[in-house]
Simulated assay, not measured.
Amino acid sequence: MADTVVGANPDPHASGEDPNRRDFIHIAAGAAAVGAVAGLAWPFIDQMNPSGDTLALASIEVDLNKVSPGQQITLKWRGKPLFVRNRTAAEIEAAVRDDNAALRDPQRDEDRHKPGKAEWMILVGTCTHLGCVPTFGGGDYNGWFCPCHGSHYDTSGRIRKGPAPTNLEVPEYAFLSDTTVKVG
């Protein structure tokens, strides 16, 4: 005669517990928890996206008729100053002559403007050292000069002297016509 324990249930499913059902409940509860966490986290993640007014400034069109040779206009683009300079022949010659100079961030002048448009220098107007706004016509190279920390840029916006590590940034831009450029 087999030993049986009094009160033991020989059928494990007799109490109504189905292992497949229990696994399903655990998986469903886990999926619901993941969905709830994602639903709560999304507003926090979404608020980090750029605001509508910033996205509206993602690109701008500039009328170049406003800029005479030797002049520069400064616009606000993506929350930063944007320099649009109409360079003189002397400024272009000085920049090309310095292509072979010892540059901290080597770049030829022709790589910093569109082909056939050497007179137009379009730069993001923030110093690459600490983000100050340089002024034109100062410094040792007759280009941009950052008075805050003494960074000197040439007429092509290349760093020549001072603490700035890189050249002034050239943004993406395209000429829509001879008198209009789209930046961004």
Rank of each mutant, 00 (worst) to 15 (best):
I25M: 13
E110R: 00
N100Y: 09
V124E: 05
S156L: 09
A33F: 12
S177H: 03
A94I: 01
M121P: 04
P147Q: 06
K66S: 02
C148S: 03
S15Q: 14
P147M: 03
A56W: 02
Q72R: 04
G52Q: 14
C127R: 08
F136M: 12
C127L: 06
R21C: 07
P106T: 13
G7K: 05
N100C: 09
Q107W: 01
S156F: 11
D105S: 10
Q47K: 06
A101N: 14
P134R: 02
V34W: 05
D111R: 06
G157K: 10
I159C: 07
H26Y: 10
D105A: 10
K161F: 13
L176M: 04
A102E: 15
L176G: 03
D99F: 00
A90E: 14
A101G: 13
P165I: 02
L123P: 06
T4Q: 14
G150R: 01
H129E: 02
K114C: 00
G131D: 12
V181S: 01
G139S: 09
A14F: 14
P106M: 14
A28V: 09
V37E: 01
P134S: 11
A32T: 04
T166K: 12
T54P: 08
I73R: 01
M121C: 09
R158L: 08
Q72P: 10
P163N: 02
